[in-house]
C-alpha cells in the first residue's frame, strides 16, 4: 500500500507556480466564520495558550535526504526535559500543519531504548550554526534556551509533504532528520537565504554570535542514524485483520 516515498500525488508537479491553491477547496463561507468565531470566544482552548515559543529552522526527509524543507515550530514545554511542538510550513495564519516534533533533553534521551534512539536526531549543529532561530526575539534573550536546545534531541514526523506538491496530506508519515555540518546534512544555501530575507537576519552572523554556546560533550551515536549507517527510515502501511470488539466498519 502507500509509503512515505510515493511520487507526487494528485497530479501536482511542483509547489511553486502550479497556479492551484494548496489545499484545494472553496473559500470560507460567512456561516462557517461565524461558527468559528463563536467557538473561539466560548471555548477556552487552553493547550493553545501554553505554546510559548516559535522556532524557525530546516529539516530533511530521512528516506530522501535530497529533500529539505523550512519549518516553523510552535512549542509547549511540559517540563524542563520535554517540549512538544506543532510544526507548520510558514508562520502566517494560514500556515499548513505539516507535522509534530518532540524534543527531549540529553538526560531523557540517554534513558530511551536503543531501537527508539535511532528515530531521533541531535540539535547541536542546528543551534550552533544559527539555523534554528526564534524570530523577532533578541539573541541575548533566547541564549539560555539555545544552550538547552543544543544538548537536546528531537523526533519529527512529517505528515504533509508540501515540498513534493501534495495538495492534500497524502501517504504515510515521514521521519525527518536535522541539518548537520556534513554531507547531505548541509542545508541548501538558497533555502537559508530565503528564510534570512524573510526575517531580515543573517544566519552566518548568528552562527558567529553563538560560538560561546557549549558543544555537548558527547552526542549519542544512536541518534542521527544516517551518519553512521547511511540508512534512513520510512513507514509502510499494511492491511491486517483488525482486533475487533464489534463489527467494522
Amino acid at each position: 500500500m502507500s509509503t512515505s516515498s510515493d511520487e507526487p500525488a494528485m497530479g501536482a508537479k511542483k509547489v511553486e507556480g502550479a497556479g492551484e491553491p494548496i489545499p484545494p477547496g472553496k473559500p470560507m463561507t460567512m456561516e462557517q466564520h461565524i461558527v468559528d468565531k463563536g467557538a473561539m470566544m466560548l471555548q477556552r482552548l487552553k493547550p493553545m495558550k501554553q505554546i510559548s515559543q516559535h522556532g524557525c529552522s530546516f529539516a530533511i526527509y530521512s528516506h530522501d535526504m535530497t529533500r529539505q524543507i523550512e519549518t516553523h515550530h510552535y512549542c509547549t514545554r511540559i517540563n524542563q526535559d520535554f517540549l512538544q511542538c506543532a510544526v507548520y510550513d510558514s508562520d502566517g495564519s494560514h500556515g499548513r500543519l505539516i507535522g509534530v516534533e518532540y524534543i527531549v533533553s540529553d538526560k531523557t534521551f540517554e534513558a530511551l531504548p536503543p531501537d527508539e534512539q535511532k528515530l531521533w536526531h541531535s540539535h547541536a549543529y542546528e543551534i550552533k550554526s544559527g539555523l534554528w532561530v526564534n524570530p523577532r526575539v533578541p539573541e541575548v534573550v533566547v541564549k539560555p534556551e539555545l544552550e538547552n536546545l543544543a544538548k537536546s534531541y528531537g523526533k519529527f514526523w512529517c505528515t504533509w509533504q508540501l515540498d513534493r506538491g501534495d495538495r492534500l496530506p497524502i501517504g504515510t508519515p515521514a521521519l525527518m532528520v536535522s541539518p548537520q555540518g556534513v554531507n547531505m546534512g548541509v542545508p541548501s544555501p538558497e533555502l537559508v537565504r530565503t528564510r534570512d530575507l524573510k526575517y531580515n537576519i543573517l544566519t552566518e552572523a548568528i552562527r558567529d554570535s553563538r560560538v560561546e554556546i557549549a558543544e555537548p560533550e558527547w552526542l549519542n551515536p544512536m541518534a542521527d542514524y544516517w551518519k553512521q549507517h547511511g540508512k534512513g527510515f520510512k513507514i509502510d502501511v499494511e492491511p491486517v485483520d483488525m482486533k475487533l470488539r464489534a463489527p467494522f466498519p
Partner: peptide, 27 residues
C-alpha cells in the same frame, strides 16, 4: 481501511544520495 485493519511498519531504506552518487563516508 476498506474494511480491513491497517498496521504501520518501520522500514530501513538507503539514504538517497544527491544526483545518483553513493557516498561511502557519512561523517
Amino acid at each position: 481501511g476498506a474494511g480491513k485493519g491497517l498496521q504501520t511498519v518501520l522500514k530501513e531504506v538507503d539514504v538517497k544520495p544527491p544526483s545518483g552518487t553513493t557516498p561511502r563516508v557519512f561523517v
